[in-house]
């Protein structure tokens, strides 16, 4: 099994190679699978689909300060698709925001890592999530507030494609364009699978990029699993001057685990021990946290 030997510290992350980051995404995915199994809670489809996006954001593009998580110059981040939070927690642990051994507590009784992220349980967060369709609206409030106080920090929210079903998402989209929130980035994890159906069917096979553009945004569609492409797109932020930016990332639900990929079944199925074994073999990396019986 391939080992991850990438250094991680706030000083060195900007120098991590793409190969190193790609390996990291596999290790973080393995961590999600293990957490879902141990915690008995899943949503692996959406966790595995957004991992490359999170790595690009947290290791390259966003300004964040693990030693001082509420630093006023940090870029604000709202993980709006809260159900997929194994991915978010794994990143927070890997970046040093929370202790690594907390990951073993995911979704367990009295855990700081509930199955939907809670600001009260985990004060390092910028926002709680669990109810869909709030991330974009709240992000516009943060963006407006930062602009008003002359703070150059940016606001990023990661949305699921499913929560673009919510009308409140489009109320926020209208407002962001009207107020010219150039400091706002929305990333849509377009993994095409929802809880019990297919996104494209539910939205009538219409284009996210065209919708955001029609709402007055700068928008791009990219391969959400290709780190260099994600990084290139992020480096072009803001996509258009004076407009908020929407990055539509085409992804695969359950990415990296053959039997989960593009299967509605795995939206919230919890993996068995055998499922974990096979998944870790395919990913070729061990989970981040130690657990008896883990391959290491």
């Amino acid at each position: 099994m391939m080992k991850t030997d990438c250094p991680v510290s706030p000083q060195s992350i900007s120098s991590l190679s793409i190969q190193c980051l790609e390996r990291k995404t596999r290790r973080l995915r393995a961590t999600c699978v293990q957490m879902a199994h141990d915690g008995g809670e899943g949503h692996l489809n959406g966790a595995l689909s957004c991992m490359d996006l999170l790595v690009a954001l947290f290791y390259r593009w966003m300004k964040n300060y693990p030693d001082n998580p509420k630093h006023e110059n940090r870029d604000r981040f709202i993980f709006s698709k809260g159900h997929a939070c194994t991915a978010y927690y794994a990143i927070l642990a890997d970046r040093g925001f929370i202790p690594m051994n907390w990951l073993a507590q995911y979704a367990k009784n009295n855990s700081p890592l509930p199955s939907h992220p809670c600001l009260h349980a985990l004060p390092v967060l910028d926002w709680s999530s669990g109810s869909l369709g709030h991330g974009l609206g709240v992000a516009t409030g943060m963006s407006y507030g930062l602009k008003l106080s002359g703070n150059p920090s940016r606001v990023v929210t990661l949305l699921s494609d499913g929560e673009c079903n919510e009308g409140s998402t489009w109320e926020g989209a209208m407002f962001a364009a009207a107020q010219q929130l150039e400091n706002l980035l929305v990333v849509v994890d377009y993994n095409r699978i929802q809880s019990v159906g297919r996104t494209d069917v539910l939205n009538g096979f219409t284009s996210f990029e065209e919708k955001f553009k029609a709402f007055g945004w700068g928008a791009k569609t990219i391969d959400g699993h290709h780190l260099p492409e994600i990084n290139d797109a992020l480096n072009e932020f803001p996509f258009e001057s004076g407009k908020p930016s929407a990055l539509i990332a085409k992804t695969t639900a359950g990415r990296g685990v053959s039997f989960m990929e593009d299967q509605v079944l795995w939206h919230y199925r919890v993996p068995s021990g055998d499922d974990v074994k096979q998944a870790l073999e395919e990913l070729g990396e061990a989970p981040l946290y130690f657990r008896e019986g883990n391959p290491s």
Partner: peptide
């Protein structure tokens, strides 16, 4: 700019207020 008309969008009215309050307004 301390005055905002969000439009006929009550969900957005509240979420903008929430986001701004989170930023200290």
């Amino acid at each position: 700019a301390r005055y905002i008309n969000v439009g006929v969008a009550e969900a957005q009215l509240i979420n903008v207020a929430a986001g701004m309050a989170a930023e200290g307004w």
